[in-house]
Write a protein that binds this DNA or RNA. Sequence first.
RNA 1: GGAGAGGUGGGUGAGUGGCUGAAACCAACAGUUUGCUAAACUGUCGUACGGGAAACUGUACCGGGGGUUCGAAUCCCCCCCUCUCCGCCA
Length: 423
Amino acid sequence: MLQLSLIREQTAEVIDRLKLKNFDGAQIINDIVRLDDSRRETQKALDDVQSQSNSLAKEIGVFFKQGRIQEADELKERTAALKLKAKDYDEKLESVKKELDDLLVRVPNLPHPGIPSGKSAEDNEIVHLEDDLIPASGEYLPHWELASKYDIIDFATGTKITGSGFPLYKGKGARLQRALINFFIDEALAAGYTEVQPPYMVNAASAFGTGQLPDKDGQMYYAQVDDLYLIPTAEVPVTNMYRDSILKVQDLPFKNVAYSACFRREAGSYGKDVRGLNRLHQFDKVEIVQVTHPEKSYQTLEEMREYVAGLLRKLKLPFRIVKLCGGDMSFTSALTYDMEVWSAGQKRWLEVSSVSNFESFQSNRLKLRYKDEAGKIRLAHTLNGSALALPRIVAALLELNQVPEGIRVPEVLRPYCGFTTIN
RNA sequence: GGAGAGGUGGGUGAGUGGCUGAAACCAACAGUUUGCUAAACUGUCGUACGGGAAACUGUACCGGGGGUUCGAAUCCCCCCCUCUCCGCCA
């Protein structure tokens, strides 16, 4: 959620910058300013009335104490009118605030000026390419064929137990999952992150705080009886650790890493590109989350990007980094890098990580602040990135490392797996 | 799930209708003292939204929501949460 002060003070610039996200904000932004004017006016009127009531009440109290009952009763009569007025203003204030919030919540984050303009993934900018590991030739089976050939992922049984998009990992497949999770967490610990194990279900306030609600309501699994949501990413619980808090500036940055299962309904994305591990309803992911000083967030974003690139190098996977264009970026993000690995079996790039700076968009919703050197309270910046999401990494690993004897496990994972070949 | 007890500022914790945005203590911060540290002393020390150049000032907030009252942290109702005991249980 954008800060009202920014919208008020730089109305034209805000509208202009939103265009980069293909968001026509002229109407809504102007409505917001108008509603906020009305909100202030009403608030002031209400404050005045309440101030009068307060002083009357005080006077009445004094009269009572002095036994001047009649004078007290006279004053009491005057409070009735004030009460009515206060009620009026209060109701108006509530409705204006609600209207204002409803609009405010619909405005996406301002995109960073450095992002490419564009409408879709076609317009993303490739900012880094490490493709020397892409095999020049040869037959490479897609991972779903390898999965059944070596009996390591059983899609059919997962479908029987639950439904499509809920695979069952078996034997060395399961072990490889666990190895990757541990590898990713250990790497993050070495990079200074603190490990946390968050809840997998969150309440509505948390889902709102990171921007899943109301924007992506239909994308989360929802347990109605308990009014809880299954997390689509550990970003939600981990970032919400800091909701409603005022941090000490010297404690920044906060760096956390969390493994979690992630649950996504993926409503409306059937058909293309959903085969095998490409798109699932449940998957494993290790997520890194940082809360930083506003002046440090872009430097942090680059560090996180480089950190994730390092993981891909260690896994010896060909990859590229794309900077998302305005139209492809999420509602909440100011700047996002996607990391994509090469799928040798499918002959295409697969997104395995998304590293984003949300600036103060989430922290404004979260009321995540810090007290600066001068004692002023300011919004912190939040960032997160997948480091990494497992399924497509597994897909790329299986496909790229297939040899006649089986699938060779990358060097770095061998201590975690306890085997060198899947066969 | 049943019974009981509670939820007050960063922490402990007073406060049962007006003098309480809230005692006291601790922590924190600034300063004095000091060869350094410690101790002692002095001061500062909630958040949000407004007004004001500023000093300062208005309003709201004592788990959340509603109500009673001229006036609510304090009384009433609903909800949430925590603790203790019982039940159930990985």
